[in-house]
Structure formats: C-alpha cells, structure tokens
Design a binder for these strands. Structure first.
Lengths: 332, 332
DNA sequence: CAAAAAAATGAAAACGATTTCAATGGGGAA
DNA sequence: TTCCCCATTGAAATCGTTTTCATTTTTTTG
C-alpha cells in the first residue's frame, strides 16, 4: 500500500469499477443495494478516506471560507468570529483564518486565499474596502462585514441610543451626558449614537453635554472622569465599555459611589462589562443575527441556489446591569 | 477563456511547454534568463494564478493546519490562537479553525480535516487526548497542546507561585492565603500552584490558609470573599483572574479598600486584569514562546527536515499592577 | 575535431477523485 | 420470439499542476 487507500483500491478489492464506488458514496446515481452495502463495508475495512485535493479539483469547492481579521486580541472580533463559525458550520464550511495587522498582509492573504483555496471571503478589515477586496479576489466572492451592497445590513445605532436614553429618562435622569466614539464614525459622518443623542436631547428641550475620550480607551475614560464627576451630570452614555470602565476606575479611586453618584451606560457588551464593579449596563450588538445574515449573503454569492437574505436592520439591545439606577434628587 | 487561466494557457501563449512554465515559476530547474522573464511577463499579463487543488494534489501539502479549539469566547484560547497564528505564519501556514463545544464535534472535525485538507493538527481540546486524536487523524501529524510527548513543554507553575510568594513576602506579607484552581489540576494531581504554595509555606514555618472558589468563576470569588476578608489574611493568591475580580467586586461593594486591606494576585493575565480597580497583579503565561515551541514540534512532525525543538520549560512571569502593595501593620 | 558533459527544453505520466459517454443484461410489451 | 427500455455498471476523459524521463542544442575537453 502507498500509505493511503484510494478509490481504486476499494474498487479493485471488490472487483467493481471506480465510478461505481464513487457513485455509491456520493449517491449521485442508483446503485444496487447489494453493491452499495459491499462498498460501504469495504470502505470501512480498508479505511478509505476520499482525498481532499482530488475532490476539490473536480467539484471546485473546498468547503473553506477565508476570514480576514486584524487581531484576535480584540474581543469584538473574536465574538464575531465565533458567530461566523457557527453560521458557517451550519453549511458544513470551515474558516481559514487570516490575521492581518497591516493592510498589505491583508492584501497578500487575499491573493493567497483566492487561487482555489477558499470558496469565498469574509472581510472584516476596516482598512480594506469592498471594491479593492473584490478586485484582488479575482472572481472569488467577497463579502465585507457591514459594508456589502446587496441585501444591506444596517445597524441602527441611533435606535439603540434612543433606547438607552429612554431607559435613563424613565429612571428619572435629566442631566445626561455623552462621550462619543470616533470608531463608530463612518465615511465623514459622526458617531450615529452622538447624532441621535443630540436630536433626542433637543427634542426634549434639554441642553446636550458632551465629553471627549479620544481613542476610546480605558485611559481616555479615566482622564475625562474628573471633569465629568465635577459637573452636575447624573448619567452618561460612554462610547464603549473600555471608556466606561475608565470612568469606573477613577470613581473607585476617588471614593465616588457608583451607581449612586452617576449612572453609566457602556457600549458593546464586551467581556469587560461583567467584570467591572458595578457591572456595566451596556448596549449589545446581537452578533448572532448579524453573522448569520452576512454569511448568508456570502453563501448566495458562492452558490446562487442559496437564496439571498432580506435586508436586515439590527437594533442594539440594552443589557441592564448594575451601573445604572434611579436618580434620587439630593435636594429633595 | 474558461474563466481562469491555467499553466497551459501561459505555455501556449509563449509557445513553450507546460513544464518550462512550471519550472520557471518554482525555480526547481535552471531556465534561461530570457525565457524566465518572458514567463513572468506572461503570467502577469494573463493574470495566471496557480491552482490550489492541482498543486496540493502533487505536493501533498496544503499549507493549512487545523486548530481544534472549544470556544472563541475564552480569552485564553484566543490569545493562544493569536500566537499560534503568528508562529504558523512564519512558516507561511494558515490556520483552519475547528470550534468544537462537544467532544464529538471535535472528533468529526478531526476526521474532516484529515483527508488531505490540512498538513497537521493542533489540538487544544482538553477532553480530546493525544492518543485518540492521533488515532483519528490517520497518519496526519497531531500535536496536542501541552500534552505532546516528544520535546515536552512543561509549564513550571510551581516556580511561578514561588515568584509570587517571594514578591508578597518582600512586601511584608506573612498571612498569605491561596484559592487553588481546579482547572490546573491534571491527571489526578492537584493544582501545582497549590502544592508549591503548601511547600513554601511549610518551609517558612507559616501555616497555610486555604479558601475554595469552586468553578473558578467571578461568582465563586465573590462568594468566598466575605470569609476571606473576615480573616486576618493580608494577601491572597487567587486561582485565576476571574476569581480575583470576584474578590474585588465584593470589596468595592463592602467599602473595603484595595489593595490597602488585602493584596491580591491573580493568574493568567487575562484581559480582565487591566480592567478591574485596582488592576490586577497577576501571573502571566508567556504564550508566544509556548506557541512557537508547540508549532515547531508540529512542523517537525510534518517535515522531518524541520528540526525538533529542545524541550522547553516555561515559568509564569509576575506582572505587577495595582492590586498588591506593601503591608502596613495596623497595630504599629 | 570528436566525444563527453552541460544546459535547456519538451512530452507524457502521475496525483485521485468526479463525470461523461458507452455498454451490458434482464424484463416486459408487442 | 423479438424489440425496446430501464436499471446497472464500466471505461475513459477530465481537472491543473508537478515530476520523471527523454531529447535537443550548446559548450567544454582531451
């Protein structure tokens, strides 16, 4: 034996032709029950496993999809990846990981993937545009996360923000501040959460309170905390959970009690959120549906028999935890 | 054109043979400079890309390695994965992700991978033993994380614990407690950190203080906190960062000042560690070297020309942050 | 200058499956 | 009985490379 068993070995062992064995296994044509069971038996006995490369050569399907990602240290990325994996596995497809910190790595990975190695590409690299990716892919379908054209996936951040504001309002808060996130700004437009906040405040006739935490890091949150706590603000929408945790750290350090002094709403429901004290009330992106939709768009591009999903609008959901509470007016 | 350009197209376009083109590209035999440059030119012009499946068919190398992982929600896993990716990419190898929550999924993924789809397997599934994995892989090299036999990778948890204890001792702490981790227990042996702690305490003639946080979760840490703070313990080695953050949460809730009341040392340097207040002093596993070593063992198994790495002993390193401080005797 | 060595290229086999085209045999209908 | 159809199966082509074996041309050497 050559080390591994081929379909020819199975055929010879039974005295039938290769095509019979192939068809018995694939079920693509009628094979008598007797022969079929003999084949199954022989396959087991000889330990035959269909060869991946040979199969791919004919079918032109690898059952692999390349996923371009900038880092695995980012919990948002890994959560997304997990959901992509779940969605793809329901199509019996595996992910080939391409981690590219620099955009050029992304480009060369794309070239490497797109020579028949993968059936399609999921691109999550923020710097790599859909158009360029499609260009480089040379015919292999590409779907760029949150930026594909057909059957758009829109994330209604504004609606999420309104939910959060309504929640705070109901808790009695009126002096509500915001720390906008620059990472949610897209092609020239400001953070949609910020816009929604401004609109909503105007609607209620309350003057907006805007604080900045450039970079959106814990450190930035920590640094803006003092001016925030010095104001008479009673609740704040932080741009993300990291900024929120920076606020919390400074509060603990200064002996400011949370959430009594101030209610804090984070954004992203990152793993951070359950660890802070108090744990963060935050806006979560339902990544499951997002991934399912994105994957379905790709599946349609790969195989038109798969139907194109309906356009989907996603609204971030409020996860209420301990960092928010009813406002008690100290002057009463 | 059939949609994509083959090596035959390039050959015809130049009026040379397929083998000439193939050799010009691979460099496996001398080709006259003139012809070579013509080939390169034509490749560019026609947009030729070597076909993955056909190449694999001959070389029996896919440049892919399957990585079995139980979840991507676990930050330890993703950090490890990131390092695996880094180590593999230096061999121009990509990872095929196999997420298996249940062991049976792991088994079937292994079978799916090992029919020529990957050149090797990195198994990180705790439930899937090396022997069974090798059995299922049917000839494809498998390396099981931290459990491969040749060129062992030992992680000297005991040494890490001694480092942490020495650190606390130097800070003046004598009443040092431990919360052992059951997840570090291996084949019947208790958590090596726990053993090292007991030894060391005995050596110093100090009686050990043992607290339990079953499950090693934040919640478990939270629940054991009261009894810990009720004792006269001044420092504690928590089994992992989650447990440590549970302690911290309870302390904040009760108005217990940290690290003044108690120094806390975590374990794992998970993303949690920088987010708590105070940020956690913790023992970090240097995953880079670990991944490099593990990958090198696999590379050797795949291609004996790659040399087998020396056995490696890894010592967790202490990352000092804000959760530890010098002990000030309140009675003085 | 002839023979051997070296350099450059071509032709065809191999890789292991799928798929197309062709053939066989048995059973029912005319 | 003869013919046709259908159910089964075989033989061979195909996918696009790499690799082996063979050939031609050029250069070197005694």
């Amino acid at each position: 034996m050559n080390g591994h068993v081929t379909i020819a070995d199975v055929a010879n062992h039974l005295g039938v032709s290769k095509s019979t064995v192939s068809h018995a296994l694939s079920g693509k044509r009628r094979i008598s029950a007797e022969v079929r069971s003999q084949v199954m038996q022989a396959v087991k006995e000889l330990g035959y496993r269909p060869n991946f490369a040979a199969r791919v050569m004919n079918t032109r399907r690898t059952g692999l999809v390349g996923v371009l990602v900038d880092s695995l240290n980012n919990p948002h990325n890994t959560a997304l990846l997990e959901e992509f994996g779940r969605a793809l596995s329901s199509h019996s497809i595996q992910m080939v990981l391409g981690t590219a910190d620099r955009i050029d790595d992304g480009r060369s990975l794309l070239a490497k993937f797109c020579c028949g190695m993968v059936d399609g590409i999921l691109n999550t690299l923020p710097e790599l545009g859909e158009d360029e990716a499609v260009e480089l892919a040379g015919g292999i379908p590409v779907v760029t996360y949150r930026r594909h054209r057909e059957s758009p996936l829109v994330i209604d951040f504004a609606a999420g923000t309104r939910t959060a504001l309504a929640y705070l309002f109901k808790l009695g808060h009126r002096h509500i501040a915001i720390i906008p996130s620059d990472s949610r700004a897209q092609n020239g437009l400001p953070d949609p959460c910020f816009s929604a906040y401004c609109e909503q405040m105007e609607l209620m006739g309350i003057s907006p309170r805007i604080f900045q935490a450039p970079g959106g890091t814990l450190q930035a949150g920590y640094e803006v905390a003092d001016s925030l706590f010095a104001s008479d603000t009673t609740a704040v929408l932080a741009g993300n959970d990291a900024v929120a945790s920076g606020l919390i750290r400074r509060a603990i350090e200064c002996g400011i009690r949370l959430p009594e002094r101030m209610s804090i709403v984070g954004h992203d429901d990152s793993p951070i959120a359950v660890v802070t004290s108090p744990p963060l009330t935050t806006l979560r992106l339902p990544l499951g549906p997002i991934a399912t939709h994105t994957v379905q768009v790709l599946m349609h591009a790969i195989d038109p028999a798969e139907l194109m999903p309906e356009p989907l609008t996603i609204i971030p959901e409020l996860i209420a935890r301990g960092s928010t509470m009813r406002f008690n007016n100290p002057h009463k």
